[in-house]
């Protein structure tokens, strides 16, 4: 793993929430899809930092670049230019093996849960440990006993141990997302990325999932970056709000004590670009 320009965070080091170690540094990250005139700029010169233990909500309209940004942080996509450092791994220069090692240390929760419906809940959770296992696995029996025990523990953590041997597709949406969280916890991650984790859920399940994410973040001293649609949920849940618009960071402020209207401007329509850009502490904190 390449040593980054900033301090390298070790997940094992016990530290108080939100210490000064920068675990994510994004530096002029730009991503374009396609070429020439039809190219679409998904991320446009994005820069910000996240310190260990911070809980950050990413806000913005659909298509503002939230998912693309999260996927870059997990090394699932490569930047067109610029880059950043996550847990000491340089996103722009890392080779595939380094990116894989990085992914092992980052949990990722998807909007659509992404469970294999035909497999049991427990096997789905076990797949979270694949990054630290050797070779392909199919069937519960192919996972070491210790992994299965650990998976059951994670399921207990999210309150679904009773459902362990049921097919994943027999669960409700909220339950499936909890299984997905348990799967991410199998990695013992130091960073948790969540891409619209509650966008497909009803309000009650949404509340449960967000509480769960906050709890596991506090217990595991995780750094959390979560993209959200709901402004109120973000304000009450996160330490900090980062707002994206047309692939640019147009808002980066602490969640406490800010006024809802400021954030709502992110969602304002026509010609509001300047309006949002002007008052807020502009792009690129740090």
């Amino acid at each position: 793993m390449t040593a980054g320009t900033t301090a390298v965070a070790r997940p094992a080091v016990a530290a108080p929430a939100a210490d000064d170690t920068v675990v994510i540094r994004v530096d002029s990250l730009t991503k374009r899809f396609g070429r020439g005139d039809t190219a679409l700029t998904a991320l446009d010169d994005v820069s910000f930092e996240v310190r260990r233990g911070e809980v950050v909500a990413l806000l913005g309209l659909s298509g503002s670049g939230k998912s693309t940004l999260l996927r870059h942080l997990d090394g699932l996509q490569a930047p067109t230019s610029g880059g950043g450092t996550v847990l000491g791994t340089d996103l722009a220069t890392a080779v595939p093996a380094e990116l894989r090692a990085l992914r092992r240390r980052i949990g990722f929760v998807f909007q659509q849960f992404h469970l294999v419906g035909r497999l049991t809940v427990l096997e789905n959770v076990c797949t979270g440990a694949l990054g630290s296992l050797r070779g392909p696995r199919l069937g519960l029996f192919s996972y070491p006993r210790a992994v299965r025990e650990a998976a059951l523990g994670r399921l207990e953590r999210v309150g679904l141990a009773d459902w362990a041997f049921q097919r994943a597709d027999t669960l409700s949406g909220g339950q499936q997302q909890r299984v997905a969280v348990a799967r991410a916890l199998m990695q013992e991650p130091s960073i948790l990325l969540a891409d619209e984790p509650v966008a497909s859920l009803d309000p009650e399940s949404s509340g449960q999932i967000m509480r769960l994410l906050k709890e596991v973040a506090e217990q595991g001293r995780l750094t959390v970056l979560c993209s959200l649609h709901q402004v109120d949920l973000a304000l009450s849940w996160a330490d900090r709000i980062v707002g994206l618009r047309h692939g640019r960071v147009v808002l980066d402020i602490p969640a406490r004590g800010i006024d809802r209207a400021t954030v709502m401007r992110l969602y304002a329509s026509v010609g509001a670009d300047a309006a949002v850009g002007a008052p807020g502490p502009a792009a690129g904190a740090g």
Binding site: A101, R103, F108, F110, Q112, F113, H114, T127, L130, G131
Partner: peptide, 10 residues
């Protein structure tokens, strides 16, 4: 999706 999730888990 599930494959993406496994890839994201390393």
């Amino acid at each position: 999706g599930p494959r993406d999730a496994l890839r994201a888990a390393g």
